[in-house]
Nucleic acid binder design. Sequence first.
RNA 1: GGUCGCGUGGCCGAGUGGCUAGGCAGAGGUCUGCAAAACCUUGUACAGCAGUUCGAAUCUGCUCGCGACCUCCA
Length: 492
Amino acid sequence: MQHPLQLTNSLSRKKEQFIPINPPFVGLYVCGPTVYGEAHLGHARPYVTFDVLYRYLQHAGYKVRYVRNITDVGHLENDADEGEDKIAKKARLEQLEPMEVVELYTQSFHESMRRLNTLPPGIEPRASGHIIEQIEMIKSIINNGHAYESNGSVYFDVINYARENDYGKLSGRVIEELIAGAGNERRELEGQQEKRNPADFALWKKASPEHIMRWPSPWGVGFPGWHIECSAMSKKYLGETFDIHGGGMDLLFPHHESEIAQSKGSCGHAPVRYWVHNNMITINGQKMGKSLGNFITLNQLFNGGHAMLEQAYSPMTIRFFILQAHYRSTLDFSNEGLQAAEKGLARLNAAIALLTRLKSSPDSTVSVGEIREGCYAALNDDLNTAIVISQLFEAVRVINSVHAGTERMSQADIDHLSQTMELFARQVLGLMPEIADAGGEDVDGLMNLIIALRADAKVRKDYALSDKIRDGLTTMGYTLKDEKDGTTWSKA
RNA sequence: GGUCGCGUGGCCGAGUGGCUAGGCAGAGGUCUGCAAAACCUUGUACAGCAGUUCGAAUCUGCUCGCGACCUCCA
């Protein structure tokens, strides 16, 4: 690693130097999706962001164990007794077995993540596969006096816990306000009578007779609460204390605050060294979210199938769009923004492709080392991918200038720049070239033949014919460019 | 109401107490049969008011506007 990596730790709200607990090993846990619906643009942000972190840590030489869960049980519609499990509700509405819902959306999620070129996590545990671990953790919390059973459910005792722990530290909550029932606007939640205090949260919920997802436990038949699965699974695969926990800012409270409380309430110490949170994607200035109904799914973006979309956007355009902003800033969706990203990315890819056939000079008029250093510095500064991209565009300008003859580059610099682009654009940012349908092996030969025939026409100054050929190919999606040393073609 | 954050040129979006972010769009020019692409030149922006300072868009205070969380949410 060239420079020390700094990450903004939500615990301190400051940038902190990243120092792993047991180098070269790094434990990275990212909150995965609750699989009761298709992933939307908002979901792409954390998974792309932490994909870059994962890639960069690996590049820096760390052995990263990347764990990202699939929440397939326990996520309730609300905190009330009647709160229906999200998965179960979807299953009822679509007349499917809950696990069919889980499979359907898990596979859809995987496909979207694959298209966004995110690397799969090393371990992708499911909440429903770790019921025993969750029960064991709940038991230990009860044994430590931080949880209690009530009518077949188990609740975390926030007041008891807060006597010796700083509950609310991560999210900036004030315990007294939570105890008082939070803000004036907070509506009365049903089923609160089972709790000793409104601030308490469920570790285990008793299953009502019609509830289809149910497991036996020491407290009767039921299902785990929403927050406990992350605590149990991160502990199982990363240990009682691990390096980085990531997720959306909207999970800060109550989810991550509860995770800390559960882990400390169970084993006595904080589970995570660095809490890293990405900001929201907004649409018309408002958070894109399921409950607001203002979301656009990734598949809709990929195929243009949404009323708000003027066109389809490729997965790499989405990825590029996300990485053009810093992960801690909100990012506003717009067709204009996506279209600008699409064009910019195409220019970037074209320049990288051009790099391989650039003519070298004995000397260089540009310094390519600064670009590489700039990329490292930007990534080390809290994963500033926006600056990395601006550095890549500096390289684009250099590449095109050399091609245009206004600058010169030595072969050594060309090689250096090639490695830089490969490393940062491809490997770290994960921006793969758009793979257009090749159309088969024959296309190359056919295109070369057509271009040769058109060149003959141009020699004869038969521009009517040469333009007819070019226009015809354009309508088929093939673009011809007449350059000084010949004609090149590309498929849209 | 509480806590936190944001307000940057036509749009998106970085950053910073004095030194070019970048992308997209626009204007002029070069190249070209034309086109496309590319290259060169071009924008003196940081919500408002007051203060600190040699100097602030960057720090402080206030005002206005917007948002996030406080309930499910990436």
